[in-house]
Design a protein around this nucleic acid. Structure first.
Lengths: 181, 181
DNA sequence: CGGTTTGTTTTGTCAAGACTGAACAAGATG
DNA sequence: CATCTTGTTCAGTCTTGACAAAACAAACCG
């Protein structure tokens, strides 16, 4: 699926929109929608995905109501989905002194990825348990045991390399969080 | 979620069920249901997952109607889902001379896993595209570029190590398919 | 206090997809 | 040919979950 023409926007006439920004804007839209689809594959609501996409592309934290406008969804949906992502620590809610409103930014920490690791580990555990139970009866099940071993090995290696990358990223941007220079 | 008591089975009184088999059977059930849930997370029908689970645990190919009985689902569902898995080359349909019926077995080839790799590559591509579009406007977007880089790197490494494991497994059981000894 | 602003929760609608059961097609077989 | 057998496809039902809109809560402000 690709990103098609947006529904006629309620109103956004007065904007800079320098001719060069045009392509950029299209790309942003595509990215945001793409993230919507991508996270949807991970069993998250599409809006949550779009939220993540939008926040990835934003250098500054974005205001709650800005999110609703920009994504053209109800405040309710923003509330629900920001909270969801917050709990998964994919995004972070930030506040400012003397400002009653909530802002959001993506969390540079693992977040999204941890989720994947966990899923892999779960499957590995499942296969492991099955392998155990298989042990006692040693009749015609050599092949089955092999298969399960393959499974276990696969998910194990996978989860390991995942964690490695995670760690690398974590330590990398643990120090550098520069203000754009 | 865990596997709870099965709905009262239509009939399965006369079975060996040596006291030791008991635990095994429970474990099998758990594994099969677990696979159902797991593949469901990957956007496949639950029945497809159960099918995969069942076939992983079976040393011999299983008959079409056996699948329907064992899983207690309609033949229609078996038909649909076996075909689905067949197209993804997760399972294989095998036939026997002089036997009109269809048998199925899991395919030791990648299959299921290839799917994961593809998904990662897609996401990587998405981020890559966004990074390109970002280039022209170099105003306040240093942070964003960094984030996208992180993304790209992450999925890249991930897909690579995945492919590595896949290749390893593929070459490993390409030769050895012993008959249980 | 009454009225804003800001975010949350709830209620209702809608759409997507899984699954069943029945109708169906295509061979076999008497 | 009538009738099984075996598998496929189709129509209908049911469940799930996303979403919007409205009701709500809690600060804040005058």
């Amino acid at each position: 699926m690709t990103v098609s023409e947006p529904v006629p926007a309620p109103d956004r006439s007065a904007e800079p929109a320098a001719a060069a920004d045009f392509a950029l804007h299209a790309a942003e839209e595509r990215f945001i929608e793409g993230m919507g689809l991508a996270l949807e594959e991970d069993r998250l609501p599409r809006i949550a995905g779009r939220l993540v996409g939008l926040l990835i592309l934003s250098p500054q934290p974005l205001r709650f109501d800005h999110l609703a406008e920009r994504l053209r969804v109800s405040r309710g949906s923003i509330s629900t989905n920001t909270r969801l992502l917050e709990n998964m620590s994919v995004i972070e809610r930030v506040t400012r002194p003397g400002d009653r409103r909530d802002y959001f930014q993506i969390n540079e920490q693992p977040g999204l990825l941890q989720r994947v690791v966990d899923r892999f580990r779960d499957r590995q555990a499942m296969a492991e348990e099955m392998k155990q139970a298989l042990r006692p009866s040693a009749d015609g099940t050599g092949v089955v045991a092999d298969r399960l071993d393959g499974f276990i090995r696969f998910y194990g290696i996978l989860a390991d390399s995942l964690r490695t990358v995670l760690n690398a990223m974590e330590s990398r941007d643990g120090n550098s969080r520069p203000g754009t220079a």
